[in-house]
Design a protein around this nucleic acid. Structure first.
Length: 417
RNA sequence: CGGGCUGUAGUAUACCGGUAGUACAAGCGCUUUGGGAGCGUUUAGACUGGGUUCGAUUCCCAGCAGCCCGACCA
C-alpha cells in the first residue's frame, strides 16, 4: 500500500477530549474514528489490525472444533422472555426498537438465547453432541458510562462461542480446551506475558467463571496475582475462603489493575432448561444440554495491546497483529532515490510481504520517522541517499534504537525467514 | 445513575461585555530534505435555544454534547 494513496492522515495532536492512551494513539495514527462517546469506526489501518486479531482467534477456535456462524443483531422479545432477560429492570443495557407493526425488538446484547434456539433446530440425539459454534458479531450495550477509549464501548465487536455438551463432565473437558486456546490467543497477540488466568464470580451454575486479565493501569478491574502459579483472583471473589480453596497463599498475592480481555463461563442448563434444548440419551431419555459461553472482544484486545505495548512516540505492534509487516520510507525527492525505493517496494510485494510504502513527496525525513514511530509497524526500511551510498537499505525494528544497512537480498531473506 | 469539569477554525489553544488572535493542518508560489522545515500568500471559527444588556463568544438559565471520579458491567 502506498501511503500517498492512503486516505487517512496522521495527526500531531490528539483531540483534547481523549485522555486514554489507546484512543489517543489510535486516533492520531488514523486507525479509528470516534463517532460518539463509546462508538468508534475502524479505518483501513485499524481494520487490518482487527482482521489479524480475528484470524488468530478464528484459527484457535477452529482448532478446538468451533464452527463459525453469524447471527442477527435484531432479536425478538420472545428469545429473551424464557430466561427473564427482556425486562429493562433485569437487563439495563438494552437498546430497543420497534417494527412498523409495533412489534418490539432488541439490538443484541449477547447471543446465548439466540444460539440455543438455533441449536434446537438441529439437535436431537446424544450422537449430535458435543459441538460448539462461534461468531464475530457486533454487540450493543447501552452503557451508562462509556470510557477508556475503545476499552468499553456501546457498540463493539465480540467473538462469542457457545458450547453444547451432554453433561458436566463432557463440558469440563471442552472448557479446559477452551482455556488453553485462549492462552494461545493472548500469547500470539503479544500480551501473553501480562495476561493472567483469573478466578471471578461464576453466576448461578458454577462456583467461578474465568477471566483473562491483562495487567495495565488502564484496566477497570482489581485482581490479586500469584506470579509463581501465574493465576489471579478477581477482587469480586477475593476472600479467605476462596484463597484457601484455590490453594493460594494470601501473603504471596499482589494487587494489580487489569483489563478483562477474555472470559469463559459455564452456563450449565440455564438456557437449555428455559428454552427446552434437550437431547435423547442412549436409553431414550430426554436430557438438558450442558452449555458454556466464551467471549473475547477484538477491539478491546487491540486497545489493550496499544496500552501495554507503546512508548512515548507511538504504538509498537507485535508482528502477528501489525497492520503491515514493513514500513518502507523513501527520503528525499531525488529521482534516483524514488526509483530505488520503488524497486525495493516491488521486490517486497513480489515476496508477498505486507508493506506500507511512504512514498510521499515533499514530506521531511523527520515527519516520516515520526509517522513510522506512531504507526508502530515492526520493520522500518529506509531508502535514502545515505543508504544508497552504502549500496543497500537501512532496516530498523520499531523496538530497537539503531538500524543497520543490508543489501536488498539480505533484506528479503531476513523478512521471509 | 450521583458528583466534578469542559464546549472558540479540521486539530490544539489565547484574549475579551464593544474589530475574535496564534500554531499546526489545508490551498497556491519559492526554497528545504536523516527526527514533526522556512518565507510569502489564501481559506477557515464562538454547540443550540432563551434571558440580562445600548451591545453577549464572554454574564445567567435550559437543552445538547464530551471528559474524569464513583456506582454499574451477561
Amino acid at each position: 500500500m502506498r501511503q500517498s494513496k492512503l486516505f487517512t492522515k496522521t495527526k500531531k495532536e490528539a483531540p483534547s477530549d481523549e485522555v486514554s492512551k489507546n484512543a489517543e494513539l489510535l486516533i492520531r495514527g488514523g486507525f479509528i474514528h470516534k463517532e460518539m462517546a463509546g462508538v468508534y469506526s475502524y479505518l483501513p489501518l485499524g481494520l487490518r489490525v482487527i482482521k489479524k486479531i480475528e484470524n488468530i482467534i478464528r484459527e484457535e477456535m477452529n482448532a478446538i472444533g468451533g464452527q463459525e456462524v453469524v447471527l442477527s443483531s435484531l432479536q425478538e422479545k420472545e428469545t429473551w422472555e424464557p430466561t427473564d432477560q427482556w425486562d429493562d429492570e433485569k437487563v439495563d443495557v438494552w437498546f430497543k426498537t420497534k417494527l412498523k407493526s409495533g412489534t418490539e425488538l432488541g439490538l443484541a446484547v449477547t447471543h446465548e438465547a439466540a444460539m440455543t434456539k438455533i441449536a434446537k433446530n438441529f439437535l436431537n440425539s446424544y450422537r449430535d453432541l458435543p459441538f460448539s459454534i462461534y461468531q464475530f458479531q457486533t454487540k450493543f450495550r447501552n452503557e451508562i458510562r462509556a470510557k477508556s477509549g475503545i476499552m468499553r464501548c456501546r457498540e463493539f465487536e465480540m467473538k462469542d462461542l457457545y458450547s453444547f455438551c451432554k453433561d458436566e463432565e463432557e463440558h469440563n473437558e471442552f472448557y479446559e480446551k477452551s482455556k488453553v486456546a485462549y492462552q494461545k490467543i493472548f500469547q500470539r497477540a503479544g500480551i501473553g506475558h501480562l495476561t493472567y488466568f483469573t478466578f471471578a464470580s461464576g453466576g448461578m451454575f458454577s462456583k467461578f467463571s474465568h477471566e483473562f486479565q491483562t495487567i495495565t493501569g488502564a484496566g477497570e478491574d482489581t485482581i490479586y496475582v500469584d506470579e509463581d502459579k501465574s493465576i489471579a483472583v478477581n477482587k469480586e471473589v477475593y476472600n479467605d475462603e476462596v484463597i484457601s480453596s484455590l490453594g493460594l497463599d494470601k501473603e504471596k498475592l499482589v494487587e494489580k489493575r487489569a483489563v478483562e480481555v477474555g472470559n469463559i463461563f459455564t452456563l450449565g442448563t440455564r438456557f437449555s432448561d428455559a428454552l427446552d434444548l434437550t437431547y435423547q440419551t442412549e436409553k431414550g431419555e430426554k436430557k438438558s444440554v450442558f452449555m458454556g459461553s466464551y467471549g473475547i472482544g477484538p477491539g478491546r484486545l487491540m486497545g489493550t495491546v496499544v496500552e501495554v505495548l507503546s512508548d512515548d512516540k507511538g504504538i509498537i505492534w507485535p508482528e502477528t497483529i501489525a497492520p503491515f509487516k514493513v514500513h518502507l520510507l523513501s527520503l528525499g525527492d531525488d529521482e534516483n532515490i524514488k526509483k530505488e525505493a520503488d524497486h525495493v517496494y516491488d521486490a517486497l510485494i513480489s515476496k508477498n510481504i505486507e508493506v506500507l510504502f511512504d512514498d510521499r513527496s515533499g514530506v521531511s525525513p523527520g515527519e516520516k520517522f515520526a509517522d513510522a514511530d506512531l504507526l508502530g509497524i515492526p520493520y522500518r526500511i529506509v531508502v535514502s541517499s545515505r543508504s544508497m551510498k552504502e549500496n543497500g537499505v537501512e532496516i530498523k525494528k520499531r523496538n530497537e534504537e539503531k538500524g543497520k544497512v543490508v543489501s536488498l537480498e539480505e533484506l528479503l531473506t531476513l523478512l521471509t525467514a
